[in-house]
């Protein structure tokens, strides 16, 4: 988006509904929001038009996002990009819990960390593949119940340990989690496999790293100082019979 043609909205003291009304009235336009302070649901379901946010947006930023591009010049709170379908969210800071919950398309790039349960329930179908790229580490339950899509965790600043909390990939049955780390995870569910990234994986990882580095001004060489690992569902481990048919 162009900062020259963009319309600026001063969000100071504005309730979320009023602010979202203003955003919706400018459906096609590029917008700059200033003095945002915790207003929720910003740009929910937005199809087009860029949105640059100064300040701290509230929960559910870009929920159901449907094609628009959001840039946050700071941190975001919980449920960023909840159930987003298309578009892009770029966060020049960290993002809270449940970031990218049930993403089904589009991209989220985060400079810093994410909280717990990031990328939970991400899903994909054929060419509709969501991407969640995180610069720092992640809390517990990263990629829980993941059914599809790509999570790339660079783990910058977490080089001394595995960059995710507990229960990474619990319930995962599709998609891939790529993690830049030299350490094994702390306990892995039996149906999730952990292995070093191979050439095929690099073809996915490299363009994402390039894009992330370009967005946040980090030299690519700084990233390739550590190996990349892959977490993916292990279909053999998933064959446990939990239920038996009853009347």
């Amino acid at each position: 988006m162009s900062a020259v043609t963009a319309t600026t909205i001063n969000a100071a003291g504005m309730e979320f509904r009023e602010l979202n009304d203003r955003i919706a009235q400018n459906a096609e336009k590029d917008l700059v929001l200033r003095d945002v302070l915790g207003q929720r649901f910003l740009a929910a379901g937005r199809k087009s038009g860029g949105l640059e946010i100064h300040g701290v947006p509230g929960n559910a930023l870009g929920a159901y996002l449907n094609g628009a591009e959001i840039t946050v010049r700071g941190n975001a709170q919980d449920a960023t990009g909840d159930t987003m379908n298309a578009g892009r969210v770029i966060i020049h800071g960290s993002s809270g819990d449940a970031t990218g919950y049930a993403m089904r398309g589009g991209e989220i790039y985060i400079k810093g960390r994410v909280g717990h349960r990031a990328g939970i329930h991400m899903k994909a179908y054929k060419t509709n593949i969501p991407h969640l790229v995180v610069g720092g580490g992640a809390g517990s339950f990263l990629g829980e119940y993941q059914a599809g899509g790509v999570i790339l965790l660079l783990g910058l600043g977490c080089e001394n340990e595995f960059p995710v909390g507990y229960y990474c990939g619990t319930g995962m049955h599709g998609g891939k989690i790529y993690i830049r780390t030299a350490h094994p995870p702390k306990g892995l569910p039996p149906h999730v496999r952990f292995r070093p990234a191979d050439g095929e994986d690099s073809a996915v990882i490299r363009p994402l790293v390039k894009r992330w580095c370009a967005l946040f001004g980090v030299p690519e060489d700084d990233i390739y100082t550590q190996p990349f690992q892959v977490l993916e569902p292990d279909t053999e481990g998933a064959d446990v019979q939990h239920y038996t048919a009853n009347r």
Partner: peptide
């Protein structure tokens, strides 16, 4: 629902 199957803007 919690799994958000098939939920997107068009569906809503």
């Amino acid at each position: 629902a919690s799994g958000r199957f098939g939920v997107h803007q068009g569906y809503l």
